[in-house]
Amino acid sequence: MTIFNLGSINIDKVYRVPHLPGPGETLAAREVTEGLGGKGANMSVAAARAGARVLHIGGVGGDGKWTVDRLTEYGVDSRGIHIGDTPTGHAIIAVEDAGENAILLYSGANQVIDPAHIADWLDTGTSDDTFVTQNETNAQREGAELASSRGMRVAYAAAPFDATRVQEILPLIDLLFLNEVEAQQLTEATGLSPEALPVKDVIVTLGAKGCRWIDTDTAETTEFPALKVTPVDTTGAGDTFTGYVLAGLDRGMPMAQAITQATKAAALMVTRLGTADVIPDLREVRDFNP
């Protein structure tokens, strides 16, 4: 079984600051680090570290060849990543002492992925596999249509939120990940609450409050409390959660068990500074007892 991830790959520059800058403010950073990031890359690394086989479909420029090598080192099948002429996407991330962040994103090669390239890699997918995508690349609808036609489970993380793009892909989704703000935005755009969406499973992450799983087939809602930790950096925690949920399901876990394990992974992640490079592996998550 394989998780096919049509996902973004970014070069992250993370600046540690005393507080998030306001309009017109010039703020000195105490330190800066550079690493692998992007919602797609983060999810691929998380799923691979959780024990799943992950094939990443995406694009980088020549300046991002090292990101492909890094993904491979972390256990991700990187053969589906095209190296082209458009510069690699990058993110400028400010992280304050309390762990909150502000992110400036340049999409770059993430938005010029050839749909034919996606089709070539999804051609090997079967009903035992999972397809996941997010809103940081082009061609999500095309990828989801191809995956659905092959009987794959289609998962979607609706971030960064765009109501039009979410509604385009909504009829094809089996599993939808939203945060609390995105859930409200989608309700305003569609007139439907998360419980009424035409998606079998909806997971709404609630930050420090945990998450909510809605099984629309049974109309049951289950709450999962967050673990209490002292946050250092919240960047990538949601992506870690998503990757771990998908890996758990891919490995045959019931949804509740997959979410419980993913909640631990996300809690551990926020105690670390960085993104893909510091996502915990399965052993670390299992040993983690806050």
Rank of each mutant, 00 (worst) to 15 (best):
D277H: 13
G248L: 02
L36V: 03
A196T: 13
F4N: 07
L206F: 01
A267L: 04
T130R: 07
L146K: 10
T235W: 05
P18T: 06
N110W: 08
G89H: 12
I173D: 12
G62L: 15
A46S: 13
K65D: 12
W66C: 04
A267W: 01
Y15N: 13
A144G: 05
Y156G: 05
N42E: 01
T86A: 11
S44F: 00
K39I: 01
V14Y: 07
E284W: 06
T164G: 03
Y15P: 02
D63G: 12
V204A: 11
G62V: 12
A50L: 07
V60W: 09
W121T: 03
A159P: 02
M253R: 10
R30L: 05
R286S: 14
Q257A: 14
E25G: 08
R283H: 14
E188G: 04
S44Q: 02
L36R: 14
F224D: 05
G51W: 02
L197Y: 09
Q134H: 09
G58F: 02
P290I: 07
D123F: 02
A159Q: 06
I103T: 08
A163Q: 04
A265R: 08
L227S: 03
Y106S: 12
F288H: 07
R30H: 06
R212K: 12
T130Y: 00
L282A: 12
R53N: 07
G125P: 01
D250R: 10
D162N: 15
G75T: 06
F288N: 12
L246N: 11
Y74C: 02
T88N: 15
K200D: 14
F177L: 14
R150N: 05
